[in-house]
Design a protein around this nucleic acid. Structure first.
Lengths: 181, 181
DNA sequence: GTCTATAGGACGATAGAC
DNA sequence: GTCTATCGTCCTATAGAC
């Protein structure tokens, strides 16, 4: 029930927003405070420094990943089907946190890099357990990363590959299922 | 014969270097000039503004892509084999230009986004022509994007997936060839 | 808990010497 | 073709009022 998000959460939302739509460079304290509707001083009360803001975002990502792993494991259509379909950016809270963290990771923020790495490892373990073949699991991970790269990393790109893949998600899932047999 | 690169080329090399290793934020005119071994004024003689510097990098990328397309088409081992193997970052001039452009594309630089998009489209056309099946070609593109994402986008990540894939490139090529039969 | 004001440094760009 | 010096702006962070 997201009735009235706290100022702290509004700041994190604003930080994500700017990172996703305009990149790391534009995500200054001034810009984040303005987008969140607070003053710079107000922002710095909740997050004492820019580093603390980054940590706040990574912590939020960590919590969302924990939930996601449960969703993957218990998906009615199966692990691989759910995992692949959830690899295109749907603007979910998790997607937004991942994309924002990826922006930070490319600005030599070691903590963001580590968070993404451990997320990837956790996903691999679940997929690998489901398909029971490491080579197949690795290939599925690459397809998933490719989907993310296309739909999330090139902001307004609407890249050809991704658009086609999105329109043909059933086809892609069938394609990948050829590997498991 | 790269005996003595011109100051202009040294500036572009430095710009790429900083974008790749430290991200867009750190790639300031001061930092690029220092890395290239020229003064800020000297840099601005060759590239009149930061925008011109970005354009210079994108032009370099365009030229390298043209060469690469010829390499892919004429590869002895075949289009798909060559394409996939060249999708891991080998620190080649092309790889470096792509990664640097990707950093810029995430900072809402439309020109960098368009350059990457047209590169992707050109690759897809070659792969599609070679395999003669759009769904298979799309999947191959996604695997390639996944390889790039892992080996190039998360700077020092040395991500699990990518490392394993690198060590098992033969295995991956075999995996993908299952799709074409 | 949120604000304004401001310090101190880094940023992109210009001017002009050599 | 390359340099130094400098301007105006923007950045992170602190101090202190409310």
């Amino acid at each position: 029930m997201p009735s009235a998000p706290s100022a702290r959460d509004r700041v994190l939302d604003a930080f994500e927003n700017i990172l996703i739509t305009q990149g790391e460079r534009t995500a200054t304290l001034d810009a984040v405070a303005a987008e969140a509707g607070v003053s710079k001083g107000g922002l710095l009360y909740h997050f004492g420094s820019k580093d603390a803001l980054v940590e706040g975002l990574i912590d939020r990502l960590g919590a969302l990943v924990v939930d996601d792993l449960t969703n993957i494991r218990t998906a009615p259509a199966g692990v691989v089907d759910y995992f692949l379909r959830s690899s295109v950016n749907t603007e979910s809270p998790l997607d937004r946190a991942i994309i924002a963290a990826t922006r930070l990771a490319q600005g030599s923020q070691p903590k963001a890099q580590e968070a993404l790495k451990s997320m990837q490892r956790a996903w691999f373990d679940v997929v690998n357990e489901a398909v029971g073949d490491e080579a197949v699991a690795r290939t599925i991970m690459l397809v998933s990363d490719g989907l993310y790269y296309n739909s999330a990393l090139l902001p307004t790109a609407l890249s050809e590959t991704s658009n086609r893949a999105l329109a043909n998600m059933d086809e892609l899932v069938a394609m990948v299922s050829r590997l498991t047999r």
